[in-house]
Design a protein around this nucleic acid. Structure first.
Lengths: 346, 346
DNA sequence: AAATTTCTGATTTACGTACATCAAAAATTC
DNA sequence: GAATTTTTGATGTACGTAAATCAGAAATTT
């Protein structure tokens, strides 16, 4: 049997109360006694029974997810996953809530973080926007001892506890590499459709893509980036104009959430373009199956949500996280390895 | 607050003892009373607090993993993941053990399953071999009410409770599709290096690969399958002979664990072949980085192990599983989206 | 109607930890 | 050495469920 607090008390020759004081960092223990108890803990290999501890504490963990609002299908899919995770939340002693804020709006995001801090939540997961206001808000959360993780788009240097998402530079490189292989020796320029350079993930993907294309044996023109603000209409207009202006266009890398507009624009043309997009949604799935899109790079939203919950809980409890389990992989989907559609995937 | 057994007792107008009898299927409750209690459970939306229940039961779950022995790097990696998961096993009230049996040996596998059943374990995870002895052994486990899951290679129709692994037909299709795209219009035949057709995963991958190649616009000769028994030396000999006999060979699909032999044989030639292999190991990772291999299809061993543990525990407790979380994705790795090497990845 | 069997209630202990209280002991200060 | 502060012990309750015991009530059989 694994050792309990009683075993520690016996081994260290102290009372249960003292063990409890050491374990939970309560005051009133001489340093020599504390050392003796800690030695016993190590000697016995004691690990706290988290289930029993939580039962005793009857603690619940209110967690807040802050996402951009709007019809970004990936974000809405993320929201669906949060809701789904919420169904099991009782068993895990968590209470999940979702707050949406205008996309690419630092002030709104910062305000939402501050509101969560004021509410006294146990943890915050946010899709970060790269701006000083957001840095400051995260700093205030840290001061209040509330763990913060960034989701999908990182903000390293901000003091956030963890980033949950893919390596976006590698994602861009992968897209570039696949684009190069798929196009082979076929001539023609390539265009990149992005959302906004104010979120780091878009910037990083672009950076990776450009570096991979530059490393290719076949030199290829990359047209100026189209910034569609993840808006279907704007993305559609930009792409349509581009298609009209560049008749020999060979490929498109859509690194943001402008796929609806992109597909609408592409539908008018044949399937002779090499198209690589991000995030598996009903739209991109359909386009993969019909051959309109050649490959989709994806991050598993369900995994990200579960990971965020595990990490925030661990941070709130001061426990360590299993890095291997929490690493989010960059999935490459082509039409042959599409997972079966889940009913509420968006 | 979520309802407890006390709330049910109050609502149904019965005692705690009666609620306990109903909840745990103990005898001595009239059907009318039982119905009343069950109605209260539904009305209140009661869900058992598993943590508290396990605490009270002080139950532990001895789980057995049965893997093929030998120097198959993927299997050894799986074993490493099991050991790693074992470090957290105390917290999850599980005790993991690993049994290895000769590869592709149905009798040995069946004996190992029977031994686990005799020991009275709480669950069994096994890499299945397709044979009647194994079917029968799984049947005996089921009769003893011990859940069985198949790992990596399935045995549907055997009564196993769950399969944890990738869709191997889709994996083969994906390999075929990538091979076709990467080769483009380049001529030359393609060869498949397998382990043994006695494990279903190899057979299924071949099936998928052949169907994808057949569906390609460019007809391509597929040479007879080389069965290397996942043995480095045999695989090396078979591949060397093939390379010598077929000078215009265009591609190799290695769908088993013969990559060490394959790479040794390829090293003598240039990098002019399109090579697609399975499972990310130190070998295949190195070959991807050096350009000797073009793509690696992978299943995440860590995910599989954690999934097996969750599922076996859920089955042992009679709980439901979260299908989305337990689906094992088919990862496609090219040199650009390689995850950082973990210290003990094999 | 009595005897028997089958249900049900009341109560208790246990799991491993958290947390509070009060008394006693030890260390520190004056 | 007395007064004070700090440290420690002893004890109890709580969390939500499991499981056992025993007495009493209800149903069934004779």
């Amino acid at each position: 049997m694994r050792p309990t607090v009683h075993d520690i008390a016996a081994k260290a020759g102290v009372s249960l109360a003292t063990v409890d004081r050491v374990l939970n960092d309560r005051p009133g223990v001489r340093s020599v006694t504390k050392a003796r108890v800690e030695a016993a803990i190590v000697a016995l290999g004691y690990v706290r029974d988290v289930a029993a501890a939580n039962l005793a504490k009857s603690r619940i963990y209110p967690l807040v997810f802050i996402l951009p609002e709007g019809d970004n299908p990936f974000m809405r899919g993320l929201e669906a996953e949060i809701r789904r995770a919420g169904l099991h939340s009782a068993a895990e002693r968590t209470r999940l809530s979702v707050v949406t804020v205008p996309a690419f709006d630092p002030a709104a995001l910062a305000a939402a973080i501050d509101a969560a801090v004021a509410e006294g939540v146990a943890g915050i997961a946010a899709v970060a926007v790269d701006a000083p206001e957001v840095f400051a808000a995260i700093g205030r959360a840290q001061e209040a001892d509330i763990p913060v993780v960034t989701l999908v788009s990182d903000l390293s240097g901000s003091g956030r506890d963890h980033f949950i998402g893919v390596d976006n530079i590698a994602a861009g490189r992968t897209a570039g590499s696949l684009m190069g292989r798929f196009l082979g020796s076929r001539p023609g320029p390539v265009v990149v459709l992005a959302g906004s350079m104010r979120v780091r993930d878009h910037g990083e993907r672009l950076e990776g893509f450009l570096s991979a294309m530059a490393a290719m044996s076949v030199a290829r023109t990359i047209l100026p980036v189209l910034e569609g603000q993840d808006d279907p209409d704007l993305s559609f207009r930009l792409m349509s104009d581009c298609l009209a202006a560049v008749p020999d266009l060979a490929g498109v890398y859509s690194l943001g959430a402008g796929n609806r507009g992109l597909l609408k624009a592409l539908a008018k043309r044949g399937v002779d373009l090499c198209v690589i997009a991000h995030e598996l949604t009903t739209e991109t799935r359909g386009a993969l199956e019909s051959g309109l899109i050649d490959a989709v790079l994806n991050q598993d939203a369900g995994h990200e949500v579960r990971s965020a919950i595990r990490i925030l809980r661990a941070k709130a409890d001061g426990l360590s996280v299993n890095a291997a389990q929490e690493r989010i992989r960059l999935d490459i989907f082509i039409k042959d390895n599409l997972p079966p559609a889940s009913p509420d995937e968006e």
